[in-house]
């Protein structure tokens, strides 16, 4: 039975914090992004918000797939950003800078999540 992974080590606590952060950042993107989509604006924000909330929840459950989901959404952001504003540095800043900082944090959680997932499945098979 799946459950939110209870962090034990500092690394696991940090990973959990990253997961919570992603969910928190994703919520306004999802809610306001849905509002923007209804107003006829860009669909990017609601999709990105939904993707990273799912990723964050999976990470909170100790699943490495959550980290990869965030990273996939982040990678998709790059072509979208260049498509919207081209090579304009100021235009790229809000689209890429913050999400990339978070991506670095997410990358660092991958080894932790891998270990967690291995331990969980070992425990699972031992039952």
């Amino acid at each position: 039975m799946e459950t939110v992974h209870r962090p034990k080590s500092a690394a696991e606590w940090a990973t959990f914090a990253v997961a919570v952060l992603i969910v928190l950042l994703g919520l306004p993107l999802l809610i306001m992004g849905a509002q923007l989509a209804v107003l006829g604006g860009s669909l990017y924000y609601v999709l990105f918000g939904a993707a990273i909330i799912t990723g964050g929840i999976l990470m909170a459950f100790g699943r490495v797939a959550g980290a990869f989901l965030y990273l996939a959404a982040w990678l998709c952001t790059w072509p979208w950003a260049f498509w919207e504003v081209g090579m304009d540095g100021w235009g790229l800043l809000p689209r890429l800078f913050g999400p990339s900082l978070v991506a670095i944090a997410v990358l660092l959680t991958i080894p932790v999540l891998r270990r967690t997932q291995r331990e969980t499945s070992l425990r699972g098979s031992a039952v």
Binding site: L25, M32, G33, L36, G41, Y45, P94
Partner: peptide, 14 residues
């Protein structure tokens, strides 16, 4: 500065 405050302005624009 971030996609969130940018999104706020996109909604205001729309």
């Amino acid at each position: 500065m971030t996609p969130i405050d940018q999104l706020y302005c996109r909604i205001l624009f729309r």
